[in-house]
Amino acid sequence: MKILYFGWVKSKIGIGGETIDLPPDVKIVSDLITFLCSRGPSHESALGNISQIRVAVDQEIGTVDTPISKAEEVALFPPMTGG
């Protein structure tokens, strides 16, 4: 699955995205965040505070409960600051 990072999530992790084969027990967004946090301290520091993380699944705004099993692209980012 293609995972994308934006804003300070990207700065903290140090990359704009990565393609990862997910274990089958990663079914919803919160599972994915927990899984990514286990990848190392920079992931943990970027994604550890889940209340600060917003998500888009296949470019649609989602929540921590959104299913991702069939998704192609999941983006994780801080609250948006457009305008």
Partner: peptide, 18 residues
């Protein structure tokens, strides 16, 4: 402002901040 996926980063004399 609240719902479009943009993120602003500012550069000041002290460095950059989101």
């Amino acid at each position: 402002k609240n719902g479009a996926p943009f993120w602003k980063k500012e550069k000041t004399v002290r460095g950059t901040r989101w």
